[in-house]
């Protein structure tokens, strides 16, 4: 297990170096950065002085090395737009996105798995058929449409929930949370519902398909033939085997949630990293874009490594160094 972990961490480092290279290259897409820093009539000497001061006269690989070294310490330089450290900007925005994604992911699991089980155990019941039909809508409607519909119904017509913003937040250290105030919680409802809807239907349909598959296996038939109660067969014997592929997809989709959060944050003017990124794109604020890219990639890598470790917990066949008996 430890060897596996070390191997995964080394792989992850290489992935992150590659991502950092792409982020670093972005600075080059925008043309010579010195042009935008000196006066229009600056002499060549003045330009070279600025270039030397910023270290831009050094070979490319040294510049990349310095970029990686600073990025590893969380230093992505200053935002070109408002001249504040990028790391501070991201740190301010991170809690909003994290809470939104957390609630959406939690909702999609807490509702998706039970609904999937329900539709698998009673595939011909009216409720299962209805859920299947609704899930088809959920999976095919674009999220921004559902977001706007949610605003129309719950904010405009019913007036129950706010249509934008995070509500009141409470600061705990550097983390600002919306979980502790009523307006914060109310503000979370619509964005997280919009964000989770796709995942929820995906997980429900996946659990249903996997569960129906598992219920047809020999070991379930054998468990029935031994007279085990159906509760144990469904939840102890079948569910664990069902969850293994579900976890893979969920891990991949969790990254997708962070990516989709950009759209949700735009629709609900949610002050998170996604909204920050959209602003950065429209202003050509490369340091913010580069830092966002690196951060999101890091989150992806961490999630996928965690998922691989979770497999081993659920599926004993993958515990590589577990003791093997005589054959």
């Amino acid at each position: 297990m430890l060897g596996f972990l070390i191997r995964r961490i080394i792989q992850s480092v290489f992935v992150m170096l590659a991502v950092a290279l792409i982020a670093f290259m972005m600075f080059r897409f925008m043309g010579d950065p010195v042009n935008s820093m000196v006066a229009e009539n600056a002499t060549t000497e003045e330009r070279d002085a600025v270039r030397a001061r910023l270290g831009l006269d050094q070979p490319l690989w040294m510049q990349y090395g310095r970029f990686v070294g600073r990025a590893a310490q969380g230093d992505f330089g200053l935002s070109w737009r408002n001249a504040r450290p990028v790391s501070t900007l991201l740190a301010e925005r991170f809690p909003a996105t994290a809470e939104l994604v957390l609630v959406a992911a939690g909702l999609s699991l807490l509702l998706g798995i039970p609904l999937g089980i329900l539709t698998a155990l009673r595939p011909n019941s009216f409720s299962a058929q209805t859920l299947q039909f609704l899930s088809l809508i959920g999976i095919s409607l674009p999220t921004f449409v559902t977001g706007i519909l949610l605003i129309l119904v719950f904010s405009v017509w019913l007036g129950w929930l706010p249509s934008f913003g995070r509500g009141e937040v409470v600061d705990i250290g550097w983390w600002s949370t919306g979980f502790l105030t009523l307006s914060g919680l109310k503000a979370l409802v619509l964005p997280s519902v919009m964000l989770c809807l796709f995942q929820l239907t995906l997980i429900m349909r996946l659990v249903r398909a996997e569960m129906m598959e598992v219920l047809r296996t020999d070991y379930i038939k054998f468990a029935r033939a031994r007279g085990l109660p159906s509760r144990s067969i469904n939840f102890r014997h079948a569910l664990r085997n069902t969850l293994i592929p579900v976890i893979t997809i969920f891990g991949l989709q969790l990254g997708g949630l962070i990516a989709f959060a950009i759209i949700t944050e735009t629709v609900f003017q949610w002050p998170g990293m996604g909204a920050l990124f959209i602003q950065a794109v429209s202003f050509g604020d490369v340091p913010v874009m580069a830092a966002y890219l690196v951060l999101v990639s890091l989150i992806f890598v961490v999630i996928n490594t965690t998922v691989d470790l979770l497999y081993a917990v659920l599926d004993p066949r993958l515990r590589v160094d577990s003791p093997r008996g005589a054959h």
Partner: peptide, 10 residues
């Protein structure tokens, strides 16, 4: 089939 009659995760 003994290979498929036993639950792999228990």
């Amino acid at each position: 089939d003994p290979l498929t009659s036993l639950n792999p995760v228990l």
